[in-house]
């Protein structure tokens, strides 16, 4: 690259910034255009079927969203589901990360625990619902258990993969400097495994968010899944769609949040933004 005067470089940088904003705006415009086309097609089909239970118009759904937001019902259920997810994720991470570290660091622990994990993992969290219904009944504990279980495995596997994937030479380099084993774990292994762990956390959030809807649909007296089911029984389709949209929006925001966390904790990782 040819070396230019500092002023010219600064100008370049401003130009780059402007271009990026323009490109962001263009992408946003395309997004709006596509979604507008989607809503128009939907409105036409709704008008054609003219059955507000089967397919309400998008306007009816927007009205329902407005009304549910105004009396805070939307946020009440969203808040409950979100709190359950955060709680279950914390429990899941608290169990999975130490276990994953132990399994990744010690071959013996890995060999002892691994088959048990591999036996349990294919049994989806949702398949536990009937048994959990018997054990916990309907309430907060059931969705918490199902979500924790669903989020546990991605986090565990990501932690193990992260620890096992640490570049051997980094550890050797630390050992040649005479650094004690414990410090190597905290200062080399864990930071090196962190990007993989953050990716695992994203997968865990996605898994437990999928489980929340199923768990609440069947076994909880509150939350977004419950609300969807409640309004379906009332045949209030606009409200059903409003809550479904809220499930999507909140799921998206959660993913955005974990990605922001990943950037905060692992600013050196380049793939923190890429999709799993």
């Amino acid at each position: 690259m040819a070396t230019g005067a500092p002023a010219a470089r600064a100008n370049d940088r401003i130009a780059i910034g402007v271009l990026r904003h323009l490109r962001g705006a263009a992408a946003f415009f395309v997004y709006l255009r596509t979604m507008l086309a989607f809503f128009v097609v939907w409105a036409i089909i709704a008008w054609w079927t003219s059955n507000s239970v089967l397919l309400p118009s998008p306007l009816a759904v927007f009205a329902a969203i407005g009304q549910l937001a105004a009396d805070l019902e939307l946020f009440f259920h969203a808040g409950i589901s979100f709190a359950r997810m955060v709680g279950s994720l914390m429990i899941g991470a608290l169990l999975a990360i130490p276990l994953g570290l132990a399994m990744g660091l010690s071959r013996t622990v890995g060999e002892v625990v691994d088959p048990t994990i591999e036996v349990l993992r294919p049994i989806s969290g949702i398949a536990w619902i009937p048994l959990a219904l018997f054990i916990f009944g309907i309430g907060n504990a059931l969705p918490l258990f199902i979500m924790t279980y669903a989020g546990f495995f991605p986090i565990l596997l990501g932690t193990i993969a992260g620890v096992r994937g640490v570049d051997r030479r980094l550890i050797d380099a630390a050992r040649t400097m005479g650094i004690p084993q414990r410090t190597i774990v905290t200062r080399v292994v864990i930071p090196a495994a962190l990007p993989s762990l953050m990716v695992a956390l994203r997968l865990g959030v996605a898994a437990s968010w999928t489980a929340v809807v199923a768990a609440e649909l069947i076994g909880a007296p509150s939350g977004l899944g419950y609300a969807v089911e409640w309004y379906r029984e009332l045949l209030a389709t606009p409200q059903v769609m409003a809550f479904i949209a809220m499930i999507g929006v909140l799921g998206y925001l959660c993913d955005l949040g974990v990605r922001a966390l990943a950037r905060l904790f692992t600013p050196w990782a380049s793939d923190a933004r890429s999709a799993p």
Partner: peptide
């Protein structure tokens, strides 16, 4: 023959 590459956002 000349060839210049105009990359968006770069000189």
């Amino acid at each position: 023959v000349g060839k210049r590459f105009d990359a968006a956002g770069r000189a």
